[in-house]
Design a binder for these strands. Structure first.
Lengths: 219, 219
DNA sequence: AAAACCACTACATAACCATGCAGTAGTCGT
DNA sequence: ACGACTACTGCATGGTTATGTAGTGGTTTT
């Protein structure tokens, strides 16, 4: 989305009225921001055309009635072009990743200053993904291998190759062909993988491999 | 890592000498930053104790000899406490995610201003993950479902439930027990999942489910 | 009423996977 | 030379999965 020549239109969904009006006052003092509407619940906002006329929705997670994450899903479905930035006290994995997976383009903790929130909104409109630093670290860390004590034994290069191909859904026969070994050779490696990951099936191995970030989900 | 009372010690690894000395000059003018060493390759840096004595390594990806990502892996292994921030021209998925998965705490594009680089280093030390906005968006988007035209048909709630349990490695019998249906009932859903995802095995379904972000890797 | 859709249930059969067990050849360390 | 280790190869067997086919009951649409 290119920077609009007109102000950035914002809808606020926040049940705490001090915070809500605090944001309204802050944005009113910023020339390139324009508050279309401010609501204390998703239901309230959905009963108006505010979101439809907005570039950004700034919303909380814990709201009366429909939760912020459910509201986010609804917004993504109805108005896929609207950028949604969550601003919430929740910094736990569940809330963070639920919101991101549901389509949030940004995630701020409520300790963010008004200036930071303004910057975040501009950032979101400019194609970025504003996050409170510790949230960003949490997101990045989710791609990285878990601490070393969780990996009882490391897979060999070959085992890693085999696991990656298993995770692509390839049969033993196909893996054997691709690696120029026999089907029983593939079995040999798979046994070792299962021993090392302490699992008993292909899907369990894939799950554990993903969990330990030994393999990555397809992109 | 808490904010150190002494300056942030930085090692620079960048083969372009104008950029390298540009950063050195910039950081020299910032009281809370201290450059321990500046190198044009990983090999050079590893032959010294600079990294060992650093809080942050700021490095490029395209380097003579050992690549930045391989160097990053080496640093993560030898000095797990050192925060590594990549600064590079590469904005493609491969480079971005390779570096992040390999352990980078931040990823900047080379268009970042000196002030932005300084802020990024402080951010990294403060526990954040500095990223050029478009990189952050790319990272966030990687958690989100692909565009709608890639999903030929949506899974029903039940199918989604079944797929998630399959991905945990659960057998048909276990899934049946947990969902209070027969094993053949599970099979019924799995058939539909395979049809919709156009796959022919459990692992292929998992792979496609992860690829389309219908299911998420375990965290 | 009939058709379409959804969520099951069931049986049969072939294919694939998981595991037990044994062996070979090459490399490395004692 | 011998033992330990690694990376295979092989056979046997039982378990699980994938697919073909058919049916039931409930709900919604035509």
């Amino acid at each position: 989305m290119t920077t609009p020549p007109s102000p950035i239109h914002i809808t606020i969904i926040e049940d705490n009225r001090f915070i809500r009006s605090g944001w309204e006052v802050t944005f009113a003092g910023v020339p390139d921001l324009h508050v279309v509407g401010a609501f204390e619940s998703c239901e309230e906002a959905f009963a108006t055309t505010a979101i439809e006329g907005s570039d950004v929705v700034l919303m909380d997670i814990q709201l009366p009635g429909m939760s912020g994450v459910d509201g986010l899903r609804h917004i993504r479905k109805l108005y896929p072009r609207v950028a949604v930035v969550m601003c919430t006290v929740y910094d736990d994995d569940q809330h963070v990743f639920d919101a991101i997976c549901a389509g949030a383009v940004g995630y701020l903790l409520k300790k963010a200053t008004p200036e930071e929130v303004v910057k975040a909104i501009r950032d979101a409109i400019a194609g970025g993904s504003p996050m409170t630093p510790t949230i960003a670290r949490k997101v990045i860390a989710s791609f990285q291998p878990k601490k070393h004590n969780a990996i009882a034994e490391e897979l060999t290069e070959r085992e890693h190759e085999v696991l990656a191909k298993m995770a692509e859904g390839k049969s033993y026969a196909t893996i054997a062909n691709e690696l120029f070994i026999s089907v029983d050779g593939v079995r040999y490696h798979i046994r070792n993988i299962y021993l090392k990951l302490q699992v008993h099936s292909r899907a369990e191995a894939i799950a554990e491999g993903l969990k330990q970030r030994i393999i990555q989900p397809p992109r």
